[in-house]
Design a binder for these strands. Structure first.
Lengths: 359, 359
DNA sequence: TTGAAAGCGCTAACAA
DNA sequence: TTGTTAGCGCTTTCAA
């Protein structure tokens, strides 16, 4: 009735404030032990809820009380020192510079780590090798459980030497010619899913505006596009594929070339391109999806969900990338494809594709 | 020469690889000392580059060599345990859910912390109070130097009790009725700057589409709008201000109401609204900026920089918020307004405002 | 059921 | 110029 781990006063009128431990000396296990009149070992057992240790109910009560009165907090450093390991996972990122959504990698990693009792130590290298080395050193010195090495766009990467001193997983990147575990988006499936949104509705002349910039995404999505056509029995026509710079301006500028192709649908390399294309179409009085169906990529919420009409797209699974990275690192799962794990890019259908094919 | 606790052979032909310390026992200060034939204290002095300590040049050389051979890394836990403090700064965020750019708070905090030799411990609470409490506990147990408590949009917040056990700074939020240090965007100045982009070009009939959602941003930007009008000698006309839901749909729907107002310019509560408005204008054959000048807010790169024409906007200083939060926490600066520090929202002019006023 | 004591890897007096 | 020693706060045998 009296105690419990409750976070309120335990008895009497004025007890120690549980908060405000800021000033003075930090409360240690020994302080608690003294107050409770037991040894510090006993307190340790109680704090850590050791199942086997049989502690007298009265002792336990007194210790609990002392803990509350003193506002005791275990010192994680001391614990870690003893155990030789920490509950840290390091995440080094090469910069969140351009793309807003890559922060979701951090988010996913953090959530998953937390779920398993780990905390994220984050470092942003902004692509600077020296910073990167320092960051990894620092993590190593903190005896992290392992390191997630992530990039803001899907690409090949070199593994910094120091990474080999601990467990690590590459996230959103991969190291060709090595067997380093890596988690990357499944670009091929993504390209296929995007195209299938269109083939499923009966489209047969489907253009693909690819990026001018070389990247796994560029190759993968094209491959996926071809796969989708193939399985729909549509012959691949290279004339329907052309490149543009992967942003709004690129999409806008691509409109003329696209319209010459006489297609009923188009798959754009990304949402930004699609956004530019929309704009060009509106100015020409061409209606989406009635005159032309459009599918994007990235599923960038702020764009795709709010264009008029809302844009069908395929998402990059950044959150999942981070989360899966942590699971790989902790050895919780060894998914198909290990050490090269591909995460599905989910398709999201919106009104930019009608249920019927334009005439 | 023969033994050593090292986990590899010590002599023989093959020298120690400097990397790959993964397996076996970690190398300690003592291992280095033994190999170098000195005491661990000496090694400590050398590792920490103590200026005063005079170490023999030959000793120093031997120790250096031993360090390299063994691939020694100091154990941060042990260091921290001795010193009683860590080089951690905690950052608890209430979720990066909707807004992509709020991740910049983490980014800014991380960079600034790093600059001063600190590392960020991040936790995402997703608005869950229990998680929040756990997160703060965990940080306290790691003896963080202090905690940054941040929200993904500018708002009033309640201070979790446990925060009082350490130094803390509120970031992007504030606690009314307390003197808790807080760093927030200067919404009033932001609204003023946005409006001034227009008044400077000679616009005198300027509409303001505010948000329907109550928030410091809503009140502050309106106030800034009024200030800008006042200093341009333009009487405030309440008819020129109305509300809309702060997204693309809201902006799109606001077009008709706006056009009835017979204004030459409009300041939108945010870029998403402006994006929707653009769309509505294009469909009516109204040209930006020739028929109507438009200014947004948030300076959301992916939108503002790539609309057609590119949108003038005012940025939310998320990165700076995080960085300034760290500086406040570490006591590096005590800016004007402390404990309530307002960070400037920078105006970015683009082509959505012409150099001359529409007829 | 509880206590005593050793030690995790490092730093900081104080000696030598 | 360098070594010895005593902890930092905690966990963990091993005794009692």
């Amino acid at each position: 009735m009296t105690s419990g781990k409750s976070s309120r006063d335990t008895e009497a009128d004025s007890v120690q404030p549980l908060t405000a431990r800021k000033p003075g000396h930090p409360v240690t296990l020994r302080d608690v032990a003294e107050l409770a009149g037991v040894s510090s070992a006993t307190v340790s057992l109680i704090v850590n809820k050791k199942k086997d240790a049989r502690i007298g109910v009265e002792t336990r009560r007194r210790v609990r009380e002392a803990i509350n009165q003193l506002g005791y907090r275990p010192n994680a450093m001391a614990k870690n020192l003893v155990s030789g390991t920490s509950r840290f996972i390091g995440l080094v990122a090469d910069g969140v510079a351009t793309t807003p959504f890559a922060g979701q990698i951090i988010h996913g990693a953090q959530d998953e780590a937390w779920k398993h009792g780990f905390v994220l130590l984050v470092a942003n290298t902004e692509g600077d090798d020296a910073v990167e080395e320092d960051a990894i050193s620092m993590m190593l010195e903190h005896k992290v459980r392992g390191i997630l090495y992530s990039t803001w766009f899907h690409r090949a990467a070199e593994i910094p030497a120091a990474l080999n001193e601990t467990d690590f997983v590459l996230v959103n990147c991969f190291a060709p010619g090595t067997d380093a575990p890596a988690v990357v988006p499944n670009e091929v499936q993504g390209g296929r899913s995007a195209t299938e949104i269109l083939t499923r509705k009966g489209h047969r002349r489907i253009a693909f505006i690819n990026a001018t910039t070389p990247a796994p995404a560029r190759d993968g999505r094209l491959q996926g596009y071809q796969q989708a056509l193939a399985s729909a029995g549509i012959p691949f026509d290279p004339h329907l594929v052309f490149d543009a710079y992967p942003d709004q301006e690129g999409g806008y500028a691509a409109a003329d070339k696209l319209l010459d192709l006489n297609v009923t649908a188009v798959f754009c390399y990304n949402d930004r391109m699609a956004m530019g294309l929309y704009d060009a179409l509106v100015r020409r009085g061409i209606s989406v999806p009635d005159d032309l169906a459009v599918v994007g990529f990235d599923n960038q919420e702020v764009i795709a969900a709010h264009l008029r009409p809302p844009l069908s797209s395929v998402g990059l699974p950044h959150y999942e990338l981070g989360a899966a990275g942590v699971r790989l690192l902790l050895g919780i799962e060894k998914p198909e494809g290990y050490p090269m794990v591909k995460i599905e890019c989910p398709a999201v259908e919106r009104d930019s594709v009608a249920s019927t094919v334009p005439a």
